[in-house]
C-alpha cells in the first residue's frame, strides 16, 4: 500500500468514527425548533447558542476543577502504586505461585459489578469518616483504577529486556534509580495508555460520586450531566453541550500525551 492510499484509507475510517461526534456538535448548535423538526440532520442550518447559554453557569468551573482534581489524583496514585506492584510481580520470584493468586484476586475485584461493591463500601466509608470528601472519592476510585492499571502494566514491563536492567545494576544503580531511569522511560507508551484509561475511568465515574458525595461544592461532572436526562425527558441541546464541555479536557490531555505514545514514529520507524 503506498503512502497516499494508506492515508486515504485511514482518514475514511476516522471519518466514520467521527459521524456521531459531528452530530453531537451539530445538535449542540441547533435551535430547539430545529432539534424537534430536523433532529436527524448532522449540522444546523443556522447557528444557535440557546443550549450553550442554558448550560453555562458559575458552578461549571467548580465541577470541572473537582473532576480534574479527583480523577487526576486517582490516576497518579493508581499508576504509581500499580507500576511498583506490576514490576514486583513480573520480576521477582514468589513462593507457592502467590503472584498468580494475587493477580487473580485483582482480576476478581475488577470483575465485581460496582453496584454490589458500593453498598458495603458506603458503610466502610461512613465508619472511616471518608464520606463526602474528595480524598475518600479518590480512594474509592482505586477499586476501579488500580486493578486495571496493574493488569495493563504487566505486559509492558515484561517486554523490557532484562539485559538492559542488568547492565544498569552492574553500574551500581539501586532498585529505585533503576526503576526511574531505565524501566520507567522504556515502558512510557504503556504508562501513557494506562494513565489515559485510568483518567477516563475517573472522569466519567458516576456511581461512587453520586453516593459518597453530597456537598454541592464537591460534586463532579458526571452528576451534572445527568441533570439533562430526567424521567421527563432529555434536553438534547444541553446534553450535547455538556457532552462536549466535559470531553474537551480529556481530549486535550490525550492529544498532548500522544507524543509519548507514538515515540516510535519520531525515532524514524518506517
Amino acid at each position: 500500500m503506498n503512502a497516499r492510499v494508506h492515508g486515504i484509507v485511514v482518514w475514511c475510517c476516522t471519518g466514520l468514527f467521527l459521524l456521531p461526534i459531528v452530530w453531537m456538535f451539530g445538535t449542540a448548535f441547533k435551535s430547539p425548533n430545529e432539534i424537534l423538526n430536523a433532529g436527524a440532520s448532522l449540522l444546523p442550518t443556522t447557528l444557535s447558542f440557546d443550549s450553550w447559554l442554558a448550560v453555562w453557569q458559575g458552578s461549571l468551573f467548580t465541577l470541572i476543577s473537582n473532576t480534574v482534581l479527583v480523577s487526576l489524583s486517582a490516576t497518579v496514585v493508581s499508576v504509581v502504586v500499580a507500576f511498583f506492584a506490576a514490576y514486583g510481580l513480573v520480576r521477582y520470584r514468589f513462593p507457592a505461585k502467590l503472584d498468580y493468586l494475587f493477580l487473580l484476586l485483582v482480576l476478581i475485584i475488577k470483575m465485581m459489578p460496582p453496584i454490589v461493591v458500593a453498598i458495603p463500601l458506603y458503610s466502610l466509608m461512613n465508619q472511616l469518616s471518608l464520606l463526602n470528601s474528595k480524598a475518600g472519592l479518590i480512594l474509592a476510585y482505586q477499586v476501579y483504577t488500580l486493578p486495571f492499571c496493574i493488569w495493563m502494566l504487566l505486559g509492558f514491563i515484561r517486554d523490557i529486556p532484562l539485559e538492559i536492567e542488568e547492565a544498569g545494576a552492574m553500574d551500581g544503580a539501586h532498585l529505585f534509580r533503576r526503576l526511574l531511569h531505565i524501566v520507567f522511560p522504556l515502558c512510557a507508551p504503556g504508562l501513557v495508555a494506562t494513565s489515559i484509561f485510568a483518567m477516563i475511568l475517573g472522569w466519567n465515574e458516576f456511581l461512587f460520586s453520586l453516593l459518597f458525595i453530597h456537598s454541592p461544592d464537591k460534586l463532579t461532572i458526571p452528576l451534572f450531566i445527568s441533570n439533562f436526562m430526567t424521567e421527563d425527558g432529555t434536553a438534547w441541546g444541553e446534553l450535547m453541550v455538556i457532552g462536549i464541555i466535559s470531553s474537551i479536557p480529556m481530549l486535550v490531555l490525550a492529544s498532548y500525551m500522544q507524543r509519548y505514545l507514538l515515540r516510535g514514529f519520531s525515532m524514524g520507524l518506517k
Partner: peptide, 27 residues
Amino acid sequence: RNFPGRRFALPVIIYPMMISTLVCSSI
C-alpha cells in the same frame, strides 16, 4: 505507519471513549 495528519487523526479516533457514556448512549 505514518501518514499525513496522523497527529490529528489519533485524537479523533480515541474521542468516543472520552465522551460520557450517558451522552454516548443518548446520541
